[in-house]
Simulated assay, not measured.
Amino acid sequence: MADWHRASAHRAASVAVLSMAAMGMVACGHKRQPQPVPPTATAPSVYNPPSYPAPAPRPSTGGIPVTPVPEGGISAEDKEFILSHRPIYSEEGSATWYTAPYKGRKSANGQVFSDEALTAAHRTLPMGSLIVVTNLRTRQTSAMRISDRGPFVPTAILDLTKASAQSIGIWPGSGRVRVDVYETPKPMDVGGRWCVQIGPFLSERKAIKFKAKLLNDYPGSKVIEFAGERSYWVRIRPAADDREQAEEMARRLQPEEGVAYLTRLD
């Protein structure tokens, strides 16, 4: 029994040392300048914990399969991976926090949204990406995974759950952060399934009118309009969800209201 207690204490001490080491490593930062599009020169490493099911085959323009994240957002394997690897991409910008407008609302990855999970929303990082977010004012850091899409405001790059925002000291409120990407289940620089989300529109009539214009201007694309929280949005998916076409659309579109956001679906 004494040996068991000593082994338990040794494991607890090891975990504490690893946690302190992770905080120190992330605080040192990654010195690359932020870029709006991930670089093509660095190929992201792929880390797939055994408990994560492989995505099912799907048609190029069909529904997006569920991309699960561990319970609570981060697993013990994720923390170990961060300790033994360096970031593959970094960017800086403003982060905000958000919550679901109703109970049971699903995140974009297909799982039910949770305020208590260490997850975040990003417009273009592959779903399920493992990131470490650093509060640039206080240097507080936390690991989390991308499970949702947003923020759809031009002034922010990341939306955090309540738990994620609290873990880096910006709840309630917002703050400037660095996002270090450690692992992406899919490549950042090639492939992907892309669209453009336009809004917000203050009236459903204007959203439907803009949808009709897009259907006329981009035949062969899939266009929908949908209601947000006290607003309306339009989403256009180019043929085969092609990234280059989506990027060109985002540059060309000039809605009467809102902004056109390039967004990755998978």
Rank of each mutant, 00 (worst) to 15 (best):
D148V: 02
P151E: 15
D159M: 03
F152Q: 02
Q140E: 12
G169V: 03
R149F: 10
R145N: 02
A163R: 14
D148T: 05
V177W: 07
R139K: 01
T141H: 15
I168Q: 04
P154M: 10
S174V: 05
V132N: 06
G150A: 06
V132A: 12
G175T: 09
Q140M: 04
I131S: 00
V179C: 02
V179W: 05
I170W: 09
V177Q: 06
M144H: 05
N135R: 00
R139S: 01
G175V: 01
T155Y: 14
W171R: 01
S164V: 04
D148I: 03
P185N: 11
R137W: 03
L130P: 08
R145T: 02
V181D: 07
A165M: 13
S129T: 15
P126S: 10
P154Q: 13
D148A: 01
I168F: 07
I146Q: 04
G173W: 07
S164L: 04
S174A: 12
R145P: 03
P185Q: 11
S174M: 10
A163L: 11
T155F: 11
S164Q: 06
Y182V: 06
D180M: 10
V181F: 08
I170Y: 08
P154D: 14
L160R: 04
M144P: 09
I168M: 02
S167E: 08
K162G: 02
P154T: 14
L160Y: 06
